[in-house]
Design a protein around this nucleic acid. Sequence first.
DNA 1: GCGACAG
DNA 2: ATCTTGTCGC
Length: 223
Amino acid sequence: MNPLHDWNLSATEAIALQKELAPRVQVTPLQQMPRLIAGADLSFDKESDVVWAGIVVLSFPDMQIVEERGLQTVAPFPYVPGLLSFRESPAVLEVWEQLENKPDVLVLDGQGLAHPRRFGLACHLGLLLDMPTYGSAKTLFVGNYDGLDEERGSTADLIHRGEVVGSVVRTKNKITPVYVSVGNKMTLDDAVKLTLACDGGYRVPEPTRRAHLFVNRLRLGEK
DNA sequence: GCGACAG
DNA sequence: ATCTTGTCGC
């Protein structure tokens, strides 16, 4: 009913909006451990802007599926590095509205503060939904790190332009780490702890892993 | 100017 | 992201 902004923007306007909204991100301690945590993701059509968006809500820390909701829609923005949220957020918000069990924390497949303008997908959705969010990306976008041990649970600060923008987290022994950063309303420590707590035995944390499987299932079945 | 570049 | 089977290794 009261959107923070509309979505029909040019790339230039989108960048200006990120700079304008970035200061509103809240890096404050998570008030309570979540009872429900959700993962959101999108699956794309090979040759069009048709996308399948989905959110999977899980109980915490049990990691049992409580609800799966998804839909097919059209992405209003192309993929441009640094502007991913303008392509994915609208679809995620559509699904969010249909959710019967609103989670306490939302996990996104992408960056939060580990972004060139400190405003990745997790920050954008965290502000729009005004709730705790964080991003767990599969590949590095900005920043550098060193000294990450091989054992599950090991972490290393992700540093970009002199700032700690995230944490590189080893979720499985000797397996490529994931890049975790705050989206909104939590600290980096909270994000790292949640990432390790959402363990399903895979590299990717359970919420986004389930969401990924779900939307892929939707696309392959409905197409 | 050149190279890099979440999903 | 998507296109795609088997295969090496724990």
